[in-house]
Computed example of a mutant assay.
Amino acid sequence: MRSARHLHLPVWALLLLLHFSAFVPGARGQQETDDESEFSYDCGSENGPENWGKIKEEWATCGTGRMQSPIDLSDRHAAQTPNLGYLNHSYRSAKASIVNRGHDIAVTFQGDAGSLWINGTAYHLTQVHWHSPSEHHLNSHQYSLELHMVHLSTENKAAVIGRLYKIGRRDHFLHKLEPYLRRMAGTKEKEENVGVVDPWEARGDGEAYYRYTGSLTTPACGEGVIWTVIKRVATVSTHQLKLLTDAVHDGLEMNARPLQKLNGRDISLFCAHDDHERYYAAADY
Rank of each mutant, 00 (worst) to 15 (best):
S237H: 12
S215K: 15
D205H: 10
G186H: 03
V229G: 01
F270V: 01
G186I: 09
A220H: 10
L177P: 13
A247L: 02
E191C: 03
E192K: 05
A185Q: 08
F270Q: 02
T213R: 08
R203T: 03
A234P: 08
A234H: 06
G206F: 11
D266K: 10
K242S: 05
K242T: 15
V197Q: 00
Y209F: 13
H273I: 07
K176A: 07
K188V: 09
I230H: 02
E192D: 09
S268Y: 08
G204F: 06
G206N: 08
T238M: 06
E277W: 12
D205Y: 11
R211H: 11
E253D: 15
D205C: 05
Q240G: 01
R211I: 14
F270A: 01
L244Y: 05
R203N: 07
C271E: 11
R232V: 04
Y180V: 09
V196Q: 11
S237T: 15
T235L: 05
Y209G: 15
H249W: 11
D198S: 01
L177G: 02
A281N: 14
Y212D: 09
K261P: 08
N263V: 06
L241V: 06
L216S: 00
D250I: 15
E223A: 04
H239Y: 12
G222F: 11
E253M: 15
P179D: 05
G186K: 09
A282C: 14
N263T: 04
W200M: 09
L177T: 13
